Structure formats: C-alpha cells, structure tokens
Simulated scan of single mutants.
Amino acid sequence: MSSPCDPEYAPAGDVGAALMVIDSRLKSIYDGKAAPGPEHQQMVEQFAASLGQVGFDALLDGACTLIYMFMSWLRAACEDHDKDVIEHVVPSLVATMRMMPKTFRPEVIPTMAGLLIAAGTDLSPNLWRAQYGRWTEAEMNPLEATAVLLAEHVNRVSGDDHDFATRLITEALSRSDQI
C-alpha cells in the first residue's frame, strides 16, 4: 500500500543549491572552522533572501532530498553488514544534536530525528514534515545542521573521505541528467 509520504510524490527541490550550502559548511568544518564566521552567515542569508519564497521552499525541499539520499545510501551500507540504519545512525546523530544546544534547541530535536527516521524507513522527509504544517524559522538552522551532520556521517562511513557525500550526490544528479 502506498503512503502519502512516499518519495515518488515529493518534490526534489533545488538539490544543487542545498548541496552547495551543505558542502560549504562541511568544508568549513574540515578546515577547522566549526562555527562559520559572520561573513559566511551573511552570504547564506543573502543567498536565501535572493531566492524568494518559491526558491526558498525549493531549497528546503532540496535539503530534505539530500537527507533522503544520504539515508538511502546509509541504509544500503547498513544492510550490507546486517545492521539497521535507524539503530546505527539516529542515536549518534541525536546525541550530537544534544551536544549542540545553540543549533539544536531541545524542542526541534524530535523533528530532526523524525526526518532521519522517515528517510530511514523510505519515506519522504519533506512530505513527512509537511503533515505537521509549514516549516518554522526555528527549524531552519537545525535542518541545515541535520543535513550537514548526516553528510559528515556518510563521509566517515566511507572511510573518512571528506568529499564522498558531495560526490555521491553530484554523481546521482549527473546520472539523472543523462536519463
């Protein structure tokens, strides 16, 4: 039976723009700048403002698509080792979220964990989230940070290849352009 949260019904959004934001954040982390400087934050805010509401919604959908794609890759990797992706990924990411109270206020952690679980059970994170109403401003940084944490987790699982998650998505986008 099909679910209304089935990924086939979800808009992919602007995956390229979302990946650009996530990759930029990953590079700053790997360069030893865990907290982005004010210039970076201003650039991200200007970029988001330039998108308008439709573009911003596409960016949110793109971030959720990244979460779905990363969790799909992790699910396949876990299945190869007879592990459950939710058991393997969600507790460690939630523990990390709890250690970052400026980014993840306690009330947003269940939503971010829900996005991971939705994707881990092959549901669309953005459609799962949509059933609870529009995104709130308080969820914007946590959504970005969740995608970054998940991408970093993919990089670690791949053997500490700092570009693996980005390459995974760009190769998938390249293949989809060829269809």
Score class of each variant (00 low, 15 high):
142 P>L: 05
130 A>N: 05
89 V>I: 15
19 L>F: 02
163 D>M: 08
28 S>V: 05
163 D>P: 00
3 S>D: 14
109 I>R: 10
146 T>M: 12
84 D>G: 13
21 V>Y: 00
150 L>K: 09
175 R>V: 00
5 C>F: 14
93 L>Q: 08
62 G>L: 02
38 P>C: 01
126 N>Q: 14
109 I>C: 06
114 G>A: 11
5 C>E: 14
26 L>C: 13
146 T>N: 07
4 P>K: 06
120 G>E: 02
83 K>G: 00
89 V>A: 08
179 I>R: 12
48 A>C: 13
125 P>K: 03
91 P>E: 06
101 P>D: 10
161 D>R: 10
172 A>F: 02
4 P>T: 08
26 L>W: 00
141 N>K: 13
39 E>R: 04
122 D>L: 08
2 S>C: 06
100 M>H: 11
141 N>D: 13
50 S>N: 13
65 T>Y: 00
157 V>L: 10
75 R>E: 09
68 Y>S: 11
105 R>K: 11
119 A>Y: 11
109 I>L: 06
31 D>P: 00
52 G>F: 05
149 L>Y: 07
45 E>V: 06
136 T>G: 15
50 S>E: 05
69 M>G: 07
167 R>E: 12
168 L>P: 02
70 F>K: 04
174 S>G: 01
128 W>F: 15
87 E>M: 02
65 T>A: 04
81 H>M: 12
33 K>P: 00
16 G>D: 13
122 D>I: 01
73 W>S: 06
99 M>A: 15
3 S>A: 08
175 R>Y: 01
36 P>L: 11
106 P>Y: 05
